[in-house]
Simulated scan of single mutants.
Amino acid sequence: MAAYRESDPSSIIVMQQPHCLAIPYVKSMVSAGLATLSCVNFDLSAAICGKEPMNVLCIGHGGGSIPLFLASKIQGAVVHSVEIDPIVISASTKAMGFPQYAVMTKSGERACLSPDPASEVLWKGIHERIQLHESDAEKFMSECNTLYDIVFIDAYDGEDIFPNKLWDPDSPFLRALGNKLHPVHGTVVVNLHSDVDLSDNNSSGSPVFHVLPMGKYVYNVCRAYKDMLLGHTSSRGGLAYTVSAPWVCNTSFVVCRGFGKSKDREFVLNSLLSKSLEVESMVGLPFTCLEYLKRGFTIVS
């Protein structure tokens, strides 16, 4: 949304709509993350009302739609967003309407000591609970002291590749993530791009996007997260699964601690679908979670 004073056309104020998640894969990530978190006895209703905190980490900021959405919908959400590229941060705050007051300095202080009057009108009660850090994800994870309830990862380099150090089992990042993820209900949602040629098995020449198959690269990423966060055996319980985002070549991978030891596909899927209806009602989602949870639902073994 953009507005300006009629007496001063140059006084343009841009505000990102916090309730809007325009991209299908982002809706998929949020749907899967909140439904899964609700399945492991995290009191989402208390967090929505602000009675309990909900610590959220977003790695890869983009335009900031996930941090804004969660902070606006969940009063107890405290959101840390980490972005390595200062150009992305600048574009987010100057061109995409993300609140400037959320930007943090290298020393961990707010870049703006106090919000300007316009920001107070637009974002009061929301921007105070968001921190946007310019940092390498590995460095941030090793230095932060927060125990996160849910983590969203959507980080790709300039060549559209998910960085190896964000999924290498021997990397400091995954070890630090395991230590900073809540041991009982901690949930991680990762956006992954399809690594298969969807037109290979389609004689018509038109790619089919209903269910994305899992190629070797995506599978290796999923296994690395599952093994590091849940352990190499199933004795600790937990769940790892993927769903396909509609209309785009993206897969949402979810790994969650504390889900239990059941690996029965129908039981797990029905549990998620049931909770998703509660999430839609409690959060007031402007879309249904169902189509983002049941498309290509696959348990990662």
Rank of each mutant, 00 (worst) to 15 (best):
Q100D: 15
Q100H: 13
A102S: 14
V103R: 06
V103W: 04
V103C: 06
V103Y: 04
M104E: 02
K106L: 07
K106V: 04
S107V: 03
S107L: 07
G108N: 05
R110M: 10
R110W: 08
R110Y: 09
R110D: 11
A111D: 11
A111C: 07
L113V: 13
L113H: 12
S114C: 07
S114G: 04
D116T: 14
D116S: 11
P117W: 08
S119P: 02
S119G: 14
S119N: 10
E120R: 04
V121W: 01
L122F: 12
L122S: 08
W123P: 07
K124W: 08
K124H: 11
K124E: 13
I126R: 02
I126T: 09
L132F: 05
L132K: 03
H133Y: 15
E134N: 14
D136T: 05
D136E: 14
A137Q: 08
E138C: 09
K139A: 14
F140G: 02
S142R: 10
S142C: 11
S142E: 15
C144R: 04
C144H: 10
N145V: 02
T146N: 03
T146C: 06
L147N: 03
L147D: 03
Y148D: 00
I150N: 00
V151N: 02
V151K: 02
F152C: 04
F152Y: 13
F152P: 02
F152W: 06
I153H: 12
D154R: 03
Y156D: 06
G158V: 04
G158E: 13
E159W: 10
E159R: 05
F162P: 03
P163D: 11
P163L: 10
K165I: 08
K165L: 12
L166W: 11
L166Y: 14
P169V: 05
P169A: 06
D170L: 03
D170A: 07
S171E: 00
P172K: 01
R175S: 12
L177C: 05
L177G: 02
G178H: 01
N179D: 15
N179S: 14
K180W: 15
L181F: 11
L181A: 08
H182R: 04
P183L: 07
P183K: 10
H185A: 02
G186M: 07
G186N: 04
T187I: 05
T187E: 05
V189F: 02
N191T: 00
L192M: 00
L192N: 00
L192A: 00
L192V: 00
S194G: 10
S194H: 01
S194C: 14
V196M: 15
V196I: 11
V196Y: 11
D197P: 03
L198H: 11
L198T: 01
S199A: 14
S199F: 05
N201W: 12
N201D: 15
N201H: 13
N201Y: 13
N202P: 04
S203H: 09
S203V: 08
S203D: 13
S203G: 05
S203I: 09
S204W: 12
S206D: 15
S206A: 13
P207T: 02
P207N: 12
V208I: 11
V208E: 15
V208S: 14
H210P: 01
H210A: 10
L212F: 09
P213S: 06
